[in-house]
């Protein structure tokens, strides 16, 4: 399932350099998904480059496709308002590393999955929920929903829900438990730092 998250995120997030003439994908949720899906396959998953280069491209695309500061606030929850600015910055940077490195480990397992958008619906005041399925080569489907927000720079993903499991809520519960056990953000930052070192490509 998490692999499905990775692949579908990659499918979606790649390649802002392609098709610069057609800007509709910056504001149209379905076009956003389709645009990134095709470019993601071409620029990362099936590109003839090494893992380090794939990881670097993925980091760029992750920043272009996701609203990382908003997700960071969400996953830290109520502790965020008590967190110092420097700790907030440190968290956002580590959280980005965690996702980039854990997802990068699976780049070579892509086996031709495609994404099919089923429809969209409103989500919050300015957001859109895109409902989709990821279809593998055997015709098996996995449900994937994308929570998008319109930002000044264009659409940004704030959550991916795979088979009912929200990435943002899962991280939030994980980190809430760590913050409780460690007695605050400092302990969480230490553990994230260790996790990043463990997962960083060698």
């Amino acid at each position: 399932m998490m692999r499905a998250v990775l692949f579908s995120a990659l499918l979606i997030m790649s390649g802002t350099q392609t098709n610069a003439a057609d800007e509709a994908w910056k504001t149209d949720p379905t076009a956003f998904i389709h645009h990134f899906a095709q470019a993601g396959i071409d620029d990362i998953l099936t590109a003839d480059i090494d893992t380090v280069e794939k990881t670097a491209r993925f980091r760029t695309l992750f920043n272009q496709g996701f609203d990382i500061p908003a997700i960071s606030r969400f996953v830290i929850g109520r502790t965020w308002r008590r967190t110092s600015d420097s700790d907030k910055e440190a968290f956002i940077a580590l959280f980005e590393d965690v996702i980039v490195y854990t997802w990068s480990r699976r780049f070579n397992e892509y086996t031709g999955q495609t994404i099919k958008v089923l429809g969209t619906s409103p989500d919050g005041k300015t957001g859109t929920l895109v409902d989709s399925v990821i279809v593998d080569d055997a015709g098996q489907t996995i449900s994937a929903q994308w929570r998008l927000r319109q930002r000044e720079e264009g659409l940004r993903i704030v959550d991916i829900i795979i088979e009912g499991v929200s990435m943002s809520i899962t991280y939030r519960q994980d980190y809430a438990s760590v913050i409780r056990q460690q007695g605050g953000m400092t302990g969480l930052l230490d553990l994230l730092g260790k996790q990043v070192v463990e997962n960083a490509p060698s």
């Binding site: 399932m1 998490m2 692999r3 998250v5 990775l6 965690v98 996702i99 854990t102 480990r105 699976r106 088979e163 009912g164 499991v165 929200s166 809520i169 899962t170 991280y171 519960q173 994980d174 980190y175 809430a176 438990s177 760590v178 056990q181 969480l188 553990l191 994230l192 996790q195 997962n199």
Partner: peptide, 22 residues
């Protein structure tokens, strides 16, 4: 994958299980 991406795997699995069951 869930274990690699989480710090407290127990807490992550608990919420993932409940969301998937829901």
């Amino acid at each position: 994958e869930l274990e690699a991406s989480s710090i407290d795997y127990y807490a992550a699995l608990r919420t993932a299980y409940r969301q998937n069951r829901a």
